[in-house]
């Protein structure tokens, strides 16, 4: 399936017809995303919803793969180069797969002055990965955030939907082990 898609959305040296391509792209996405895209196409400015669609795709898959981006291009009828151009411009979009738990350590100003660097270092040591990397077992991805809006409780770490406040390096092992229990 994925191989097909690679053909589908490349620059045109494939033998598939457009119907197959769209069909293959549709197979990739759940109903809610397809519905949303359909809705967008009726919009006055359909292209303007590209970022919204990319958000939905990332929410579903955890990241934006070349295949899913190509499929978005196909279904929204936007050049594939533009889709990847937009996706790569914005920090929020992840172009690599991520672990089960994404740990975002805030390095915004308030967190920085309250010692967030030491917290990041501790996570890095405990997990054995650097920022932007994922552990071998696929459990954790370590990321840096630029302010999560909870600055008054700095330093702040976000894991999934949970925000941990006033994190110190010595709390890090506990936070990691409580993730593993989930």
């Amino acid at each position: 399936m994925n191989n097909n898609l690679k053909n589908v959305c490349c620059s045109g040296d494939c033998s598939k017809n457009e119907k197959d391509c769209i069909e293959a792209s549709r197979d990739l996405f759940p109903e809610n995303i397809l519905k949303f895209i359909e809705q967008c196409l009726k919009d006055e400015h359909p292209n303007s919803q590209l970022i919204t669609v990319l958000h939905k795709v990332q929410d579903h898959f955890g990241y934006l793969s070349p295949q899913t981006m190509d499929a978005v291009a196909y279904l929204m009828q936007i050049p594939a180069a533009k889709v990847s151009g937009v996706a790569s411009f914005y920090h929020y979009f992840r172009l690599k797969p991520c672990g089960k738990h994404v740990i975002s350590v805030c390095l915004g100003t308030a967190c920085y002055v309250n010692g967030a660097e030491a917290v990041l270092k501790k996570f890095s040591e405990e997990l054995g990965i650097k920022e932007g990397e994922t552990t071998h077992d696929g459990m954790f991805t370590l990321e840096i955030a630029r302010c999560l809006g909870a600055c008054a409780l700095a330093p702040v770490v976000k894991i999934g939907d949970d925000i941990h406040s006033q994190v110190t390096p010595d709390k890090v092992p506990f936070i990691i082990s409580s993730c593993l229990k989930k």
Partner: peptide, 8 residues
Amino acid sequence: IRLGAGAF
């Protein structure tokens, strides 16, 4: 609503 995507 339109969402940003992490670009200052």
